[in-house]
Computed example of a mutant assay.
Amino acid sequence: MYVSVSQKNYLNVLSYNTEILYLCRFIHPQMQNYELLALQNQQRAHEVIKRLDLLTFWENHGCRANVIGSLAMKLLVKHLDIDIHVYSSGITEESSFAIIADLAKNQHIKEIRCINGLHTDEHCIAWHAIYEDAKGDKWQLDMIHIESGTQYDGFFELMAQRINARLTEKQRQTILRLKFETPDDEEIHGVEYYQAVIEDGVATLDELRNWVATHRTTGGIYWMPD
């Protein structure tokens, strides 16, 4: 049984994050910049989902939708992106495009790109949409529409659950700090931070760069802790 942020508990998560952010601002003025930035951007990400009613949007089209990735693990820091995996049966290009056509009607959706992987072992269509919020900041919505019951159904939800179960508070702080310290034009995958810190004790940006140089593979990155 994996745990994910789905519509049924989403409003509770949003309310909880709002209260935590308020308390941190006024009760813990010593909080590090990266911690406060992470909390602020995680709160903003939840507000984007709420304004779009994104989980309900997919569910109303007969899909099961879960928030995954850094937001689900409370490890989102600087990058304004939201990862959602969506599942349904009998996906076709026509059916998935029809759903996204409805999303495109929202005036705050500025761009949508598609990668068709239905004929690969991933059995999915990847949708990447750009949402512009009230501040003019652009959020990337990575919505992966996956055929139910195939290889990656629930995989990344399980990854998030296992990482959260293994992660100590010290490791969480290290990951947040490393993400904050990484230059915006340097690409390090989220799972590389997690594996390097949790499995190999990486603690500095130089150590992380060396770790990535020796561990990065050319294929997908599917590590999760036991």
Score class of each variant (00 low, 15 high):
Glu186Pro: 00
Glu93Trp: 12
Ile109Lys: 05
Ala45Gly: 06
Leu205Gly: 09
Thr218Asn: 14
Phe156Asn: 02
Val197Asn: 03
Asn210Gln: 15
Val212Arg: 12
Asp81Ala: 01
Ala213Ser: 15
Asn33Thr: 12
Ile125Thr: 01
Glu192Phe: 03
Asp185Ile: 04
Asp142His: 10
Leu37Tyr: 03
Ser88Phe: 14
Tyr131Gln: 07
Ser88Leu: 11
Asp142Lys: 07
Phe155Gly: 03
Gly62Thr: 03
Ile146Cys: 08
Tyr222Thr: 10
Glu93Lys: 11
Ala203Tyr: 08
Thr204Cys: 00
Asn66Met: 11
Phe180Leu: 10
Asp53Cys: 05
Pro225Ala: 00
Asn41Lys: 07
Glu192Cys: 01
Thr217Leu: 09
Ala126Lys: 14
Trp127His: 10
Lys179Ala: 00
Gln173Trp: 13
Thr217Ala: 05
His28Met: 12
Asp200Trp: 03
Val197Arg: 06
Arg216Leu: 05
Ile125His: 06
Arg162Glu: 04
Thr150Val: 10
Asp83Cys: 02
Ala45Val: 02
Glu199His: 04
Val191Glu: 02
Ala38Arg: 02
Lys179Arg: 07
Ser89Ala: 05
Ile115Phe: 09
Leu76Ser: 07
His46Ile: 08
His119Ser: 14
Asp102Lys: 06
Gln43His: 12
Met31Trp: 13
Gly219Arg: 07
Ala165Phe: 10
Gln171Gly: 02
Gly90Asp: 01
Asn60Phe: 10
Gly154Arg: 02
Ala165Glu: 15
Tyr22Met: 14
Glu181Lys: 02
Asn17Lys: 15
Cys124Leu: 07
Ile109Asp: 05
Ser6Met: 15
Ala196Thr: 05
Lys50Glu: 10
Thr217Phe: 05
Glu35Pro: 05
Leu118Pro: 03
Leu80Asp: 08
Glu19Asn: 11
Trp58Met: 13
Leu76Trp: 03
Cys114Gln: 13
His28Val: 15
Asp142Gly: 00
Gln30Asp: 14
Phe97Gln: 04
Ile20Thr: 11
Glu169Arg: 08
Val77Arg: 03
Arg209Gly: 07
Leu178Phe: 00
Thr120Val: 06
Ala65Arg: 04
Ala65Asn: 01
Asp142Cys: 08
Tyr16Cys: 11
Gly62Tyr: 08
Leu80Cys: 03
Lys138Arg: 15
Phe180Glu: 01
His128Ala: 13
Ile144Pro: 01
Lys78Pro: 05
Leu118Phe: 04
Glu169Thr: 09
Lys135Ser: 10
Gln173Asp: 08
His61Phe: 13
Thr56Met: 14
Phe97Glu: 13
Ile163Asp: 06
Ala101Trp: 00
Cys63Leu: 15
Asp81Ser: 02
Gln195Leu: 02
Ile188Asp: 02
Ala165Lys: 06
Arg25Asn: 14
Gly154Phe: 04
Tyr10Gly: 00
Trp211Phe: 02
Lys78Tyr: 06
Val48Pro: 03
Asp137Phe: 12
Leu167Ser: 02
Val86Asn: 04
Ala101Thr: 15
Gly219Ala: 09
Pro29Ala: 10
Phe97Ala: 13
Ser6Ala: 13
Leu54Ala: 01
Lys78Ile: 05
Lys138Trp: 07
Val77Glu: 04
Asp121His: 09
Glu199Pro: 08
Leu141Cys: 04
Lys74Arg: 14
Leu36Glu: 03
Val13Trp: 14
Lys105Asn: 10
Asn116Pro: 11
Glu93Leu: 06
Glu132Met: 10
Ser96Tyr: 09
Ala98Asn: 12
Asp83Gly: 08
Leu176Arg: 07
Glu207Leu: 07
Ala203Phe: 09
Asn116Phe: 01
Pro183Met: 05
